[in-house]
Design a protein around this nucleic acid. Structure first.
Lengths: 159, 159
DNA sequence: ATGGAACAGTTGCATTTGCAATGAAAGACC
DNA sequence: GGTCTTTCATTGCAAATGCAACTGTTCCAT
């Protein structure tokens, strides 16, 4: 790997790349655990958002985990086959469907969550509690900026 | 403000989810720019690593951007069709293949890099330079931990 | 030196994903 | 109320991805 590069800038100073890289590395290390339980990373994220937010619609889940609703529709179908979730049409808005965690899905969460927490502890071990809080707060601020930006783009795309 | 939620933990305190979420939001906002130039996010990342590291093999690129070599083999094929890169077999190790940026690829980089930098500036605007440096350094430390962990797993999988 | 193990890349095949079109329901506006 | 627009979910279809198998090459222990 050629490293003797005289460029002032390095990819490791470029936040979007750094974040994407860390994200993919974390997924890479955790996926084997998920495979042992017969699920994929996308399914795991669906389980997570349902556990922490309660029943959600497909667009809700889509916005939370960044997977298109067309993909999600079939992904949820597979999760239903695995008895992890249920899907029923909402009565207050007949366009939407409510995806809910079944007890099997909750059980899977309880089984895997300690492993997930451990994985987090591993990568955050070098940092003090205040450092870590600041780090997470910065990520949340970036998240907010990006969501606002996407919302603005949606509006302008209509106007 | 009293927390009405009995759960002590929130997904926004869970680093792997936060990082994945921010990464997918950043990709979502930048992808339209890439589409205007007829490339995908994966292709853009290949361009990035080639620009900043020089010619690389498929496994090099795979480790850097987290895409399997089988996928990468065909992805590079598409990039060759687009005249962005070249592929030739290395003479020092005949198993490997050298992927290099062509001038058209370099031109594409120069065209898009200001936009990428602007996107970074947008999300990092609220932070001071030292804050941002600390943030990036923490990401790099996490990256190192994860790479070491993967390396250890590879070794133990063979032993 | 040599035979076996590990590695790099490619390809067939099945799965997953996204896009675009569709249908159905809700909202906006008059 | 009635129409027109927007939103939500699903599906057909094409593209992209990953896994596993295979070829060719290098490494390593004997």
């Amino acid at each position: 790997m050629p490293d003797a590069n005289p460029k002032a800038f390095d990819l490791h100073d470029f936040v979007p790349f750094l974040v994407a890289r860390v994200g993919s590395l974390m997924a890479l290390t955790f996926t084997p655990l998920l495979e042992q339980s017969g699920i994929t990373m996308h399914m795991w994220r669906v389980v997570l958002v349902l556990h922490f937010n309660g029943p959600l619609t497909l667009v809700d889940i889509s916005r939370l985990i960044g997977v298109k609703t067309s993909t999600l529709s079939r992904l949820v179908g597979r999760m239903i086959d695995k008895r992890l979730v249920t899907r029923r049409r909402s009565q207050d808005d007949a366009r939407t469907v409510q995806i809910s965690l079944r007890s099997e899905g909750q059980a899977l969460f309880r089984k895997l969550w300690p492993e997930a927490a451990k994985a987090q502890d591993t990568v955050t071990a070098p940092f003090s509690a205040p450092e870590l809080d600041t780090f997470k707060e910065m990520l949340r601020q970036i998240e907010t900026i990006l969501m606002d930006q996407l919302e603005a783009e949606r509006k302008s795309r209509r106007g």
